[in-house]
Amino acid sequence: MIGELFIIFIGVVLVNNFVLVRFLGLCPYIGVSRDLKSAAGMGVAVIFVMTMASAATWVIYHYLLASGPHNIWFRLFGDGIDPSAFNFSYLRTIAFILVIAALVQLVEMVITKSSPALYRALGIYLPLITTNCAVLGVTVLNVDSFFPGGEAVPGSFLKCLIQGFGAGVGFTLALILMASIRERLELADVPPALRGAPIAFMIGALMSMAFLGFTGLI
């Protein structure tokens, strides 16, 4: 079990890094990577949101959406009805978006109270986590990998948590590397046409090429 969890973690941090291999969450990756401090803050926020979202969506999916003996609707109203009639997994996207939005509101309130400076540094990107494809992506990926055919694999809750946490760590790693590289490039003689976002995308591309080396590790 420990080994399995370790493989999930390494897989989502290095081999299938959300930013560098799956190309999810590029908006904050380019937008909040101008300096290390706000990149680190954004990374921590994303780790928190991804882990919490993984836990919350597991509960929602397992008990409310997926068909099977755990489905609450089936337990309440299912006498004599085929369990597969209670398969609501087609509501996955909208249900997950709602959960993530509520979570981000929570994070935002905490950061506003605890660190106004970080709140200002994150700017528009914190509310944007709400609709961040990386966060939705990790919850959908959790369902795809740990609910094959709608039935949860053993230990799926813990696995979802680890995958969510790992995805956040992988995102933070990419973001911090990008921010440190961009800080160094502040004084570089980058051609005017490439300054700002273009060179950031090029750095991202080259980093993706470097991370190709981890292909097949798991």
């Binding site: 440190s180 160094r184 470097a210 080396g213």
Partner: peptide
């Protein structure tokens, strides 16, 4: 790690590129 467990038999090239990305952080 790449040589022993990865998808490619050789990992020197990737390892240097990945560590290149870490260089500004290490310097800091």
């Amino acid at each position: 790690i790449v040589r022993l467990y990865g998808g490619f038999p050789e990992g020197v090239c990737y390892s240097i590129l990945v560590m290149n990305a870490f260089t500004p952080l290490i310097d800091k």
